[in-house]
Computed example of a mutant assay.
Amino acid sequence: MGGFDSYASVNNAMLTSYSKEGFLCEAKRLVHKMGLGGRDEVSWNSMIVVCGQHREGSEALALLCEMVRMRLEVDMFTMASVLTAFTSLKDLAGGCSFMLR
């Protein structure tokens, strides 16, 4: 990409594009390539959405736990994305208990 792939915003746009096209493996590969230091909150949120959209709810929840562990900002967008992940798991009780925390 001519050096532009070092910018989180460019990677986040690519991540969104991969998700929309259904390329889950490529999205995961990109996030892995970004590394922990190259991801921002948007990157984490985007990957949670990707996992939820592709019925990888457990992985989305694992990403949320990692965000919390790293003390990244968990905002309302993150919370909505996690609820989407619960729907992909068909776990209404889990989603309700999550919201009551």
Score class of each variant (00 low, 15 high):
residue 97 S to D: 14
residue 63 L to G: 13
residue 24 L to T: 13
residue 24 L to P: 02
residue 13 A to N: 05
residue 82 V to K: 01
residue 1 M to H: 07
residue 26 E to H: 09
residue 59 E to T: 07
residue 77 F to Y: 13
residue 2 G to M: 07
residue 8 A to H: 02
residue 2 G to W: 03
residue 10 V to H: 02
residue 84 T to I: 09
residue 46 S to T: 15
residue 49 V to W: 00
residue 96 C to M: 15
residue 26 E to R: 04
residue 8 A to P: 09
residue 12 N to G: 11
residue 76 M to E: 14
residue 26 E to I: 05
residue 95 G to M: 10
residue 29 R to Y: 02
residue 66 E to Q: 10
residue 2 G to H: 11
residue 4 F to K: 11
residue 52 G to V: 06
residue 30 L to Y: 04
residue 45 N to V: 11
residue 26 E to N: 12
residue 41 E to M: 06
residue 47 M to Q: 02
residue 24 L to Q: 04
residue 99 M to A: 14
residue 33 K to V: 02
residue 72 L to K: 11
residue 86 F to R: 00
residue 8 A to G: 10
residue 100 L to F: 13
residue 21 E to H: 04
residue 10 V to R: 04
residue 81 S to P: 11
residue 27 A to D: 08
residue 71 R to K: 15
residue 39 R to L: 14
residue 43 S to G: 09
residue 81 S to N: 10
residue 31 V to A: 08
residue 5 D to L: 13
residue 83 L to T: 04
residue 4 F to M: 14
residue 15 L to P: 01
residue 76 M to R: 06
residue 71 R to G: 02
residue 94 G to K: 00
residue 67 M to D: 05
residue 88 S to Y: 02
residue 68 V to W: 11
residue 6 S to A: 12
residue 29 R to F: 08
residue 37 G to A: 14
residue 41 E to G: 08
residue 82 V to F: 00
residue 8 A to R: 01
residue 69 R to T: 10
residue 39 R to I: 07
residue 93 A to T: 09
residue 62 A to S: 13
residue 71 R to N: 12
residue 86 F to G: 00
residue 9 S to W: 04
residue 91 D to A: 12
residue 83 L to Q: 05
residue 83 L to R: 05
residue 59 E to Q: 11
residue 21 E to Q: 11
residue 1 M to E: 09
residue 65 C to F: 12
residue 57 G to E: 07
residue 37 G to H: 04
residue 91 D to M: 09
residue 92 L to Y: 04
residue 78 T to Y: 06
residue 21 E to F: 10
residue 80 A to L: 10
residue 31 V to Q: 02
residue 77 F to P: 01
residue 63 L to P: 06
residue 58 S to A: 14
residue 70 M to G: 11
residue 44 W to A: 03
residue 11 N to T: 12
residue 52 G to A: 09
residue 86 F to H: 01
residue 68 V to R: 14
residue 40 D to M: 10
residue 100 L to M: 12
residue 94 G to H: 01
residue 18 Y to C: 07
residue 85 A to P: 06
residue 1 M to V: 07
residue 82 V to S: 01
residue 87 T to D: 14
residue 8 A to M: 05
residue 92 L to A: 15
residue 60 A to E: 03
residue 49 V to C: 08
